[in-house]
């Protein structure tokens, strides 16, 4: 860590890791089911809530239900990648594939970034897809007052922005845990747990405990952005080659 020459990150290596991960996910039934079923749940529940509203709802009641529905949708980027990210390092350790990878010229920064991107890309696609489905269903079938309330920039923009930010948080927290624990299941439980705190803040705003002002939203967003970017370096430093290997006993 004393080296002063700027590190050259290899796009080839990062791309190789992302491709490998995505291939591996697609063939892992546990991953496909948790990435497929959970999001559906979090889009169906809010839609049901909104349709239960009936036509007369208005004012604070309407506001609350819609706020809650959008919050459900934010559970998707927070929770969906948590399981995969928590598996990422300790899982490879457990199946014995980490050692051969670490004998190649790959840097830990590349390895971890590749892992993070591989969790981030499908999460983003799924979360936006579910949000799209939600908007489409609401736009087509909900009452006019609901439609007007949902299709406001102040509703949609935060949703679009917080989706990647929350995903980033969950992914780095999950990878950090995955680099330090030596048991897949512990990693996944902890990973799910730590994906929630930023969501708690968001939900306090959703329920009106904290007044959701533009300023506050920006501060929270900026904080998450800084964390997401800084986390890469921090997690890379936590990733200790020797510990990764020493844990493995043949």
């Amino acid at each position: 860590m004393t080296s002063t020459t700027p590190m050259r990150l290899s796009h080839t290596r990062i791309r190789a890791i992302v491709r490998k991960e995505l291939r591996d996910y697609r063939r892992n039934r546990f991953v496909t089911s948790s990435m497929g079923v959970m999001p559906l749940l979090f889009v169906v529940l809010p839609i049901i809530d909104i349709f239960k509203l009936g036509s007369g709802a208005s004012g604070p009641k309407l506001d609350n239900v819609i706020g809650l529905a959008l919050l459900y949708l934010l559970l998707i980027p927070a929770l969906v990648p948590a399981v995969v990210a928590a598996y990422s390092v300790v899982g490879e350790r457990e199946q014995g594939t980490l050692e051969p990878v670490l004998t190649t010229p790959v840097r830990r920064e590349e390895f971890l970034l590749g892992k993070a991107l591989a969790a981030f890309l499908p999460t983003l696609a799924i979360a936006y897809l579910m949000f799209g489905i939600f908007l489409a269903v609401v736009g087509l079938f909900a009452h006019q007052e609901v439609v007007t309330d949902v299709f406001k920039t102040s509703r949609i923009l935060p949703q679009v922005l917080f989706t990647p930010l929350l995903a980033g948080w969950s992914i780095w927290a999950g990878i950090a845990i995955s680099s330090r624990v030596s048991d897949v299941r512990v990693a996944q439980q902890l990973g799910t747990l730590v994906s929630l705190p930023p969501l708690a803040v968001t939900s306090l705003m959703g329920f009106g405990v904290i007044r959701p002002t533009v300023g506050l939203g920006l501060v929270l967003g900026a904080a998450l952005l800084v964390i997401d970017i800084g986390a890469w370096r921090v997690v890379s430093m936590l990733f200790d080659r020797e510990r990764m290997i020493s844990g493995i006993k043949a």
Binding site: K20, R23, G96, T97, E99, P100, T103, A250
Partner: peptide
């Protein structure tokens, strides 16, 4: 260099 560890460590789903 290249190292072949004691256990080959292949990705079994690949």
């Amino acid at each position: 260099i290249a190292v072949m560890p004691e256990a080959p460590g292949l990705y079994l789903r690949l």
